[in-house]
């Protein structure tokens, strides 16, 4: 079962054509505990995760975030499903969740139940949809579509995603009214949706 998943995932990944096949490397980590493969994944993603943490204003915890995320990648490599997400998308979702987790740990309260971050931000491990859009091609199109966004929309999207800021904070930073920022974000979402849908037909 896992084997098949791994194979289908390497097929989709190689469709990308450039750079190492991260899906295949993750499969080697999952099935053989391949440290060499993991070292390659680490060398590529660890510096990006660190950059993400720094952008989010987590300088103090940047190294910790890298270690937490990469530990999780090592332990959960068998849950990676190539038809659901590309390796970088999967690692992005893990990074986002670990970041939330680190921030939540700081503000722990005495309430009885802590709802796990992974329950609030679930990462599915199996593709249950009937028509699955291939993850790699979604990502390839996304990359192209982002390039076509007007710069002011792109900046807004990047700030929200990458700096973990609220709309209000981003608006203040860009010196535009909140409504203007929301308008830009809405437009960019609409545009990305239209471009992706056009590509899917």
């Amino acid at each position: 079962m896992l084997r098949t998943k791994a194979q289908s995932m390497s097929n989709t990944s190689s469709a990308n054509g450039d750079g190492p096949d991260w899906g295949e490397l993750l499969a080697q980590v999952a099935h053989k505990g391949d440290t060499m493969a993991f070292r390659k994944v680490y060398a590529h993603f660890a510096p990006r995760i660190k950059a993400y943490a720094i952008n989010q204003g987590m300088h103090q915890q940047a190294e910790e975030l890298v270690q937490e995320v990469m530990t999780s990648v090592w332990r959960n490599a068998d849950k990676y499903c190539g038809s659901l997400a590309s390796a970088s998308t999967w690692i992005f979702t893990i990074t986002r969740n670990q970041r939330i987790d680190l921030l939540r740990k700081k503000g722990r309260t005495s309430k009885e139940i802590t709802v796990d971050t992974e329950e609030l931000w679930q990462i599915p491990t199996e593709d249950t949809t009937i028509r699955s859009i291939q993850a790699m091609s979604t990502e390839k199109r996304m990359r192209e579509s982002i390039g076509e966004l007007p710069e002011e929309q792109m900046i807004a999207v990047r700030k929200v995603y990458y700096e973990g800021k609220t709309h209000q904070e981003v608006a203040e930073e860009l010196n535009v009214p909140l409504g203007t920022l929301k308008g830009r974000l809405r437009l960019s979402m609409k545009k990305l949706r239209v471009m992706l849908e056009a590509a899917e037909l």
Partner: peptide
Amino acid sequence: CNQCQSQLRKLNALGGVLLEETTPASVGAN
């Protein structure tokens, strides 16, 4: 909701692309 699941998948892919395209920082150095 399958529709939102699918939309979320695309948005996550946006995050993946941004992570991929970010300028890497040096790891292990303080």
